[in-house]
């Protein structure tokens, strides 16, 4: 069996998530997902952990400096041999660098010359085009201007939504050429992580709305409780 067919059974046993932002919950629990992922070879399991570790910000210490995040990304890339997975990690870290630059500019700061602040091919380009709304990267990241507007209006929820949507779309694009290989497994897990995040936001929003409705329904009686 070739590498292209290495995980036919695993992929077939994984339910596809509903479309992003429409899903009420992830297609399967993390516990069940981890159980299914036990069929990965030790090397592939390590690769998956590296990719997830490099992209999951919740695994970073809260006081992590930009330099630490960049070093972490570089370390992960150095240990990932697979070119497709390297591209996925690099893409996501580049997107984060662009957003970090937008945030920095919205705070009125200039490009942090001489200090490590970003990752990937566009760092120098962004520094040179700091004053342009989309850093003259409209061809590569056409959504940067929209993200810039959202940051300026402090609409964190819409920005998060936009970024997750872009990350999901990029994964979908790569998924088209990988059906049953390790790349397909990693892409599934990364998509699962994105869906999991959006459904948690939905749960929080639903709880807030429920509380607001309860309060308005109870009216003045709320003081009784």
């Amino acid at each position: 069996m070739s590498q292209a067919d290495a995980y036919v059974m695993l992929i077939s046993s994984l339910p596809n998530p509903e479309s992003l932002f429409r899903a009420k919950r992830p297609p399967l629990s993390r516990l069940k997902l981890d159980q299914r992922l036990r069929v990965l070879t030790a090397e592939d399991a390590r690769t998956l952990k590296l990719v997830e570790g490099a992209l999951d910000w919740r695994r970073l210490p809260i006081d992590a400096a930009e330099g630490d995040i960049i070093a972490r990304g570089r370390r992960a890339l150095a240990h990932i041999d697979n070119p497709t997975l390297q591209r996925i990690v690099r893409d996501r870290l580049e997107i984060r660098s662009c957003v970090a630059a937008l945030r920095r500019r919205a705070r009125g700061e200039g490009p942090p010359l001489g200090k490590p602040w970003g990752f990937g091919r566009w760092v120098g380009h962004i520094e040179r085009n700091w004053s342009d709304a989309g850093f003259r990267l409209d061809g590569v990241f056409p959504w940067l201007r929209e993200a810039d507007g959202l940051i300026r209006h402090s609409d964190a929820a819409a920005l998060e939504r936009l970024l997750l949507q872009q990350a999901y779309r990029r994964l979908q694009r790569v998924a088209g050429s990988h059906t049953f290989d390790i790349e397909a497994v990693v892409i599934y897990v990364l998509k699962w992580n994105i869906v999991n995040r959006t459904t948690r936001y939905n749960r929080v929003a639903a709880t807030r709305r429920f509380e607001a409705l309860s309060r308005s329904g109870l009216g003045k009686q709320v003081d009784l409780f």
């Binding site: 069996m1 067919d5 036919v8 059974m9 695993l10 992929i11 077939s12 046993s13 994984l14 339910p15 299914r36 049953f180």
Partner: peptide, 12 residues
């Protein structure tokens, strides 16, 4: 290949 896919689908 197809047999593995069918086993995977049966799990789900």
């Amino acid at each position: 290949i197809s047999g593995q896919a069918s086993i995977g689908a049966m799990l789900e």
